[in-house]
Computed example of a mutant assay.
Amino acid sequence: MDPVNHTWTQSFILAGFTITGTLRPLVFLGTLCIYLLTIAGNLFIIVLVRADSGLSTPMYFFISILSFLELWYVSTTVPTLLHTLLHGCSPISSAACFIQLYVFHSLGMTECYLLGVMALDRYLAICRPLRYPALMSRQVQLWLALASWAAGFSAALVPASLTATLPFCLKVVVHYFCDLAPLMQLACVDTSWHAQIYIVVIAMINICDLVLILGLYGGILKAILKLPSAASRAKAFSTCSSHITVVALFFGSAFIVYVGPPGIQAEGIDKIIALVYSLLTPFLNPVIYTLRNKEVKEASRRVTQKIGFALKRL
């Protein structure tokens, strides 16, 4: 074919999931409930951290930043998922498709960096307790948070811009949102070198960040084992267990999709796994960080009492 005729398509069609009959509205309602609970849960954490002085520590500052990120992360893909569940195949303009691709990967890479920053915070709190207040001052917290966002949105420029410049012959995206592999399958040209660049960029970020997190937790584990009592060891470990769970969920699913064998994409399993890090992880984060957290429960009680006293005065 003449490459001149392989022009930039004006729109794509999101195929979504193949669900028919009475199951479609049930899946739609279930997804909608999870989405609304995700929004409510992450907003709850943000408001609680801002409202209660007992949570004005670096750890909860970064948790609130993560919750703020999850609000945008889940809202980047779930609305299109809901639309495809309700109406079936849904058209999306090429501009909206590439913006979704860029924002989704920007937020995903930002979360990678932020999870690394949160591991660093736990390392300094446990391994450098005397110097911790100075090392993790408010200014440092803000700088680390901003650096995570800047690095994430900068790194995503490479895969997003390369994909946007591809010539496309087909329009049906076999996914519920615009992602790298489904879009490359629609290209009129060989995309093998694009795939290699994507794997190198995404794998480098994920692997380097995961190695950093594992190294920091190696130091944390050594410090915890040196603590004198079992109670102090359990207390120190409890401050890390929630973060470890989130790291395992996020990196595990991301590695399978973006660094795993190509057969996964061919089988369409990537759509199922994508639900883990694009919907399930943002939904579970508030639960993981609050369910067994005594400080959050006590803060919730204090804020609830304040609201109750304020309402009585009205």
Results as ranks from 00 to 15, higher is better:
65 I>E: 06
68 F>W: 08
53 S>I: 05
55 L>I: 04
105 H>P: 12
68 F>K: 03
64 S>C: 04
79 P>M: 11
104 F>D: 09
73 Y>S: 13
70 E>S: 14
66 L>A: 13
103 V>N: 06
86 L>F: 12
76 T>I: 13
110 T>H: 07
64 S>T: 03
113 Y>D: 07
62 F>D: 02
85 L>V: 08
112 C>I: 12
117 V>L: 10
108 G>P: 03
113 Y>K: 07
83 H>R: 11
87 H>F: 14
61 F>A: 01
104 F>H: 15
91 P>K: 12
78 V>Y: 12
63 I>W: 01
55 L>N: 10
94 S>G: 07
97 C>P: 00
74 V>S: 06
94 S>F: 00
72 W>P: 05
85 L>E: 02
99 I>L: 12
86 L>S: 06
105 H>A: 06
80 T>M: 04
87 H>G: 05
67 S>H: 03
80 T>E: 01
109 M>W: 11
53 S>L: 09
112 C>V: 14
75 S>P: 01
116 G>C: 12
56 S>E: 06
102 Y>A: 01
70 E>H: 13
87 H>T: 08
75 S>V: 06
90 S>R: 08
114 L>P: 15
52 D>L: 02
56 S>F: 04
117 V>I: 15
113 Y>V: 12
109 M>G: 10
61 F>D: 02
108 G>V: 07
55 L>V: 05
67 S>L: 05
59 M>T: 11
62 F>C: 04
73 Y>D: 11
83 H>I: 07
114 L>R: 11
90 S>H: 13
107 L>F: 14
86 L>N: 06
53 S>D: 08
71 L>M: 05
82 L>Q: 01
78 V>M: 09
97 C>W: 00
